[in-house]
């Protein structure tokens, strides 16, 4: 369920997009430095967002030039090592490890072996990260265990299952400065809720096919992936309501170096993602360095 939280690049200034890319690359290098190749492999947009939010009231960011495997022929401008990058890298390893463990318990046969391989691949990094951030580790494992229990019982309330994942993400706010912890916690809660529900909608078809628990299907007693229009609208209302609450929380955060980018993510990127997911046109982010949108074959961006 990663990669849903990203900016709408068309609405960013060129320099803001470059900064976003530098932060993405900075997180990748930090993951590589601390956790090696397994670390790099779990890089995703959601934790770039978290990194930018944890920046707090700092008004600058230092850059440096580095090479990497996908961009071997060009030295790229990346964010220099900073505390928010370190924290975010550690958190993403912890979450990825627990997700892999969850997958392992959930699946059977070859899929189970694959999930186990991922888990073993991440174990070393996880031990290091969990030693550094024991509170987050505890919070993730207990929330995911609670979520599993709800899923096993076929919980029919969408909010109740979404609450667990949302609370898990919200606990990442403990790493922030005291002054902005409360609004950040609220922001992450609502964003976590949006991710969970959007992901459930996107997985509707495969979950129904494999007879797995799906919170949206359970809430609306769906048996086929073609949900009626009124259900789609009802989910849209729920998600857009959360966007409003997320924006309200975001506005209470102090202005930071990253505000133009994070504001775009919350107020434009996420609503766009919701529209795309509900319309079935959402494409998961590809691997590799984020690319600036090109306009070939698209007219809607010009309107």
């Amino acid at each position: 369920m990663f990669g849903y939280v990203r900016p709408c690049a068309e609405e960013l200034k060129v320099k803001e997009f470059e900064r976003f890319r530098a932060c993405y690359c900075g997180l990748c290098h930090e993951l590589g430095r601390e956790y090696g190749i397994p670390g790099r492999s779990i890089l995703n947009y959601d934790f770039v967002f978290l990194t930018m939010l944890l920046w707090g009231g700092r008004e600058t960011c230092d850059y440096t030039f580095r090479r990497c495997l996908p961009g071997l022929f060009r030295r790229r401008c990346v964010c220099q090592r900073a505390q928010p990058l370190t924290v975010s890298a550690g958190y993403s390893v912890i979450l990825a490890y627990w997700k892999a463990r969850d997958n392992e318990d959930d699946s059977r046969g070859a899929k189970r072996l694959a999930a186990r391989a991922v888990r073993l691949f991440l174990t070393r990094g996880y031990k290091k990260a969990a030693g550094k951030y024991p509170d987050f580790d505890k919070s993730v494992s207990s929330r995911l265990a609670e979520l599993r229990e709800l899923e096993r019982d076929g919980e029919r309330s969408l909010d109740r299952s979404a609450d667990k994942f949302a609370a898990l993400l919200a606990s990442a706010s403990d790493a922030a400065e005291e002054s902005c912890r409360q609004p950040l916690k609220s922001l992450l809660y609502h964003v976590g809720r949006i991710i969970y529900i959007a992901d459930a909608w996107a997985d509707l078809e495969s979950d129904l096919k494999d007879r797995r628990y799906n919170p949206v299907a359970a809430r609306f007693s769906l048996t086929s992936p073609q949900a009626p229009e009124e259900i789609r609208e009802s989910v849209r209302e729920t998600l857009m309501g959360s966007v409003s609450l997320a924006v309200a929380a975001f506005n209470l955060l102090p202005v930071s170096y990253w505000t133009p980018v994070t504001e775009n993510i919350v107020a434009v990127g996420i609503p766009k993602m919701i529209n795309d997911v509900l319309a079935g046109t959402f494409k998961a982010a590809g691997r590799g360095i984020p690319k600036r949108p090109s306009n070939t074959g698209r007219t809607e961006t010009l309107k």
Binding site: C8, E237, M240, N275, D276
Partner: peptide
């Protein structure tokens, strides 16, 4: 709670809501 007056409904990039006036109409 239904977000009737939510300002984030239309992003400009998604499919336009049915029956609404999009930027082209406005133009």
């Amino acid at each position: 709670v239904s977000g009737a007056n939510s300002p984030y409904r239309q992003t400009g990039y998604g499919p336009p809501a049915q029956g609404s006036c999009d930027m082209c109409d406005m133009c």
